[in-house]
């Protein structure tokens, strides 16, 4: 594996606040890496240090194997897409995309060719003469992408690129960015707080919290095997059960089933089977969200959440009333043991 960029023991603090804490991270060439975490986890600070908009207080950053720790942004040849897009309002779409090429003194016929090539890639060639103000949010974002790609950057950096788009467009742009990444074979670093986005788009996802990496790996490695409670919670595991024998167990609401009677069903001993009382249930179209209470080993009541898929649209909402005695259970394969 070739390394496009690397953080070596990087820290950055703002006053007393340690935003990034002794970070070691390799960004793989030609892959899409997401930095994922809640706000304040240091993901944007990390991206900005890579782009040169912030200098580490400790450690080194290399880009393409060369030290870039103190290199100003204009010497890094990275394509950055800002959350607000940061298009130049006094230039047309084409002039925005041409900006980095002009700075690089790319001569005229070649410059126009590359501007149109980049705009074609994002499907906006027909709007080249417009001003950014005359475009929709989604179109502005594509211009920002085209502008960043046109300079043929060593890495493409995306800071929450989809967060200002409406829900439908956001989902559409995920595959769009993946397609662009595949067509250009660019190394991409994407910052997001949306785990669905990260799961769908990443080759590698890096989960961060308070300036340190909690877990990293391919989505299909990380998702079924969260390394700790923080990662599990962030990825949507909602049920945490202390088992005296097996330690802290977690199970997703989708995998925690609810059986109407206390006798059924028979589950292999490795799974989980607990008597419970329904505390609330909510109708959510295709799913029912059922909250139950179980007693843990210490005799304390803890809440568990199940989302139960209704078999058909005609299925009844019956059998799930507050106070009902039920059995919650899950298969062994859906049970994740967390260390500590």
């Amino acid at each position: 594996m070739t390394i496009a960029a690397e953080f070596i023991g990087v820290s950055q603090s703002f006053g007393d606040f340690l935003a990034v804490d002794n970070l070691d991270l390799k960004i793989e060439e030609g892959k899409l890496t997401t930095l994922l975490g809640p706000s304040g986890c240091g993901k944007t600070t990390t991206l900005r240090m890579l782009a040169g908009y912030g200098t580490p207080t400790k450690g080194r950053i290399t880009i393409g194997g060369k030290d870039a720790t103190r290199l100003p942004p204009e010497k890094r040849n990275l394509g950055m897409v800002f959350q607000s897009y940061a298009l130049f309002p006094h230039m047309t779409v084409a002039e925005n995309v041409a900006y980095g090429l002009k700075i690089r003194k790319v001569s005229e016929p070649e410059r126009s060719r590359r501007v149109m090539e980049s705009l074609d890639l994002v499907g906006l060639a027909h709007l080249a003469k417009r001003r950014p103000k005359a475009l929709s949010g989604g179109q502005q974002q594509r211009v920002a992408l085209a502008r960043a790609i046109a300079i043929r950057p060593a890495l493409l950096l995306l800071d929450e690129p989809l967060s200002n788009l409406d829900a439908r467009l956001r989902v559409q742009m995920r595959s769009e960015i993946r397609r662009i990444q595949a067509e250009t074979s660019l190394s991409v670093v994407l910052v997001t707080h949306d785990q669905d986005e990260a799961l769908e788009m990443s080759d590698t996802m890096v989960l961060m919290r308070e300036g340190t990496i909690m877990q990293q790996g391919a989505p299909e490695q990380v998702f079924p095997a969260p390394a700790n409670r923080f990662v599990a919670e962030f990825l949507g595991y909602e049920n945490f059960i202390d088992d005296p024998r097996r330690g802290l167990l977690t199970v997703r609401p989708e995998h925690l089933r609810v059986a109407a009677s206390e006798t059924e069903p028979a589950v292999a001993s490795a799974g989980l089977r607990l008597p419970a009382t329904i505390t609330s249930s909510a109708y959510r179209g295709v799913d029912l969200v059922i909250t139950t209470a179980v007693l843990n080993a210490a005799g304390e009541e803890i809440p568990l959440v199940s989302t139960v898929r209704r078999d058909s649209l005609a299925a009844d909402f019956m059998g799930h009333n507050r106070g009902d005695k039920v059995t919650v259970y899950t298969r062994d394969v859906d049970l994740v043991a967390l260390p500590g």
């Binding site: 782009a51 040169g52 908009y53 100003p72 942004p73 204009e74 890094r76 040849n77 990275l78 394509g79 950055m80 800002f82 607000s84 897009y85 940061a86 298009l87 130049f88 309002p89 900006y99 980095g100 700075i103 690089r104 502008r147 960043a148 300079i151």
Partner: peptide, 23 residues
């Protein structure tokens, strides 16, 4: 104006002075 336009110009290769002149 968007406060990040100057950073965007720097990222695209413009020196601080060039950024001032062009953005």
């Amino acid at each position: 104006a968007d406060p990040f336009v100057e950073e965007a110009a720097r990222g695209l290769g413009a020196s601080p002075f060039k950024t001032f002149l062009t953005v």
